[in-house]
Deep mutational scan, measured.
Amino acid sequence: DRIFMTRTEALEFLLKAHQTAVDKIGHPSHKQTPADHAAIEALDRLLLDVRARRVDQFQINASAAQIIVTD
Rank of each mutant, 00 (worst) to 15 (best):
A10K: 00
T70N: 08
A52H: 14
R51C: 07
A21C: 05
D44K: 15
M5N: 00
A42L: 14
R54A: 05
D71N: 04
A62E: 10
D49A: 04
D36M: 09
P34F: 10
I3T: 05
D1Y: 09
I40V: 10
T70P: 02
D1R: 04
E12A: 12
D44A: 11
E12T: 09
S29L: 06
I68W: 12
L48A: 09
A39C: 06
I3L: 09
Q32P: 15
A21D: 01
I3N: 03
H37M: 15
F13N: 01
F13T: 03
A52S: 12
P28Y: 03
T6G: 05
I3P: 01
S29H: 07
R7H: 09
H27E: 14
F58S: 00
L48K: 15
V50S: 00
Q66D: 05
R51H: 12
A17H: 08
H27F: 06
S63M: 12
P34W: 11
Q32L: 15
H27D: 15
F58M: 01
G26M: 15
I3Q: 07
I67E: 00
R54P: 01
R54Y: 06
A52K: 12
T33D: 12
P28I: 07
R45I: 08
F4R: 06
M5P: 00
A17F: 07
L43D: 00
R54E: 06
L48P: 01
T70R: 13
A17N: 04
M5S: 00
Q32A: 15
I25C: 03
I40D: 01
Q59V: 05
A62H: 12
I3D: 02
L15Q: 12
T20Q: 14
I40A: 06
I67W: 02
G26Y: 15
R53M: 14
I40T: 02
V50W: 01
D36L: 15
K24T: 08
E12C: 08
A21K: 03
H18E: 01
D36Q: 06
A38F: 09
V69W: 01
H27Q: 12
S29W: 06
F58I: 03
D23T: 07
I68V: 12
Q19E: 08
V22M: 14
S63Y: 14
R7T: 07
D56L: 10
A35W: 09
V22A: 08
